[in-house]
């Protein structure tokens, strides 16, 4: 267990360092324009007094490094400051919306992950025959389609023409679970379709890779049943790559959520971010950017950790 634990600790330390650097990058990204934030919020026609006032309110008169340190220090204590546009506390708006976004992503993952692994297995089982070819054709098509197209096509046909699901996904805190699930039926379907193809294709590649190895051939030559070969010999070795695939796609899901939330007017993080980008509300954008990056890095590191832990050579060193 020693080596594996050490590796896991290393990865986690590395990801914390990465997150720290990313926070710096996000902060710097909002400082690189020719004027400054105050100028871009108020526009070219702003009076000098208004500019000076806003600069003072934003603390822009202090050097950038000092502002970064105090921003990061507050952010680590869960304080992202207040939104410029409505003066509300960012963290309280953010936490409710983050919950909504994770709720949406959770259901999409719950449906897409088992389905993708199952279909990936089907593609391997019927390799080079029609189910496999159909799956790769659908994959090629679906990576070429923007999320909002799938969203609007579903909204138009399923929501409006058939009337099976609501076209706008409004959810409140005190809605029952059933009502919530009905409200998010369409966005969950869109997200599932968006990640399904990619996840399926990568699962197929990962399992094929294992199936072509020498020990699987040996197992076949020993005369083991197909089920036993897959279950005892191929599957344990495919866990790491498949988990990697799943985590990478979940990370993608979190980003895909941004567009899907806007399409279905779902009160989540993505919509919050997009709204405030167009209003040039920099503190909100920084906070959302940091949270999205943290989730993304977190999922990537989880993939790393699981693949380390599922590697028997690292778990039982000689």
């Amino acid at each position: 267990m020693g080596i594996a634990l050490k590796l896991v600790a290393q990865r986690i330390a590395l990801s914390l360092l990465l997150l720290f650097l990313v926070s710096g990058l996000i902060f710097a990204g909002t400082q690189i324009l020719p004027g400054d934030v105050a100028q871009s919020i108020l526009g070219q026609s702003a009076t000098p007094e208004a500019l000076a006032n806003l600069r003072r309110d934003l603390g822009l008169n202090e050097p950038a490094l000092q502002r970064y340190i105090s921003w990061l220090g507050n952010a680590m204590q869960g304080d992202f400051g207040t939104a410029l546009t409505n003066g509300q506390d960012i963290i309280s708006s953010l936490s409710g919306r983050l919950k909504n976004t994770l709720f949406l992503a959770f259901w999409a993952a719950l449906i897409s992950v088992p389905l993708a692994i199952f279909l990936g297995l089907v593609a391997v089982r019927y390799r080079e025959r029609w189910p496999d070819k159909l799956i790769s054709a659908v994959t090629l098509t679906s990576i070429s389609i923007p999320e909002f197209l799938i969203g609007y096509v579903l909204m138009y046909f399923v929501g409006v023409k058939l009337g099976w699901a609501p076209t706008v996904s409004t959810v409140y805190a005190d809605m029952s679970l059933g009502a919530k699930l009905q409200a998010i039926a369409l966005p969950v379907t869109v997200l599932t379709l968006v990640v399904l193809a990619h996840m399926m294709r990568m699962t197929r590649a990962a399992i094929l890779n294992v199936m072509q190895s020498a020990y699987v051939e040996t197992a076949e030559l020993k005369g083991l049943s197909m089920f036993r070969i897959i279950w005892r010999h191929a599957f344990p070795n495919a866990i790491a790559p498949v988990v990697n695939v799943v985590m990478l796609n979940l990370a993608y899901l979190v980003v895909g959520v941004v567009v899907v939330e806007v399409v279905f007017v779902y009160p989540g993080m993505g919509q919050y971010l997009v709204d405030h980008v167009s209003k040039r509300d920099v503190p909100v954008v920084q906070a959302c950017g940091l949270v999205f990056a943290a989730v993304y890095i977190g999922l990537n590191i989880a993939a790393d950790v699981i693949s380390i832990l599922s590697n028997p050579r690292l778990r039982h060193p000689k």
Partner: peptide, 9 residues
Amino acid sequence: IFALVLLSV
């Protein structure tokens, strides 16, 4: 996300 952060300013 990074593009949105940059485009906000």
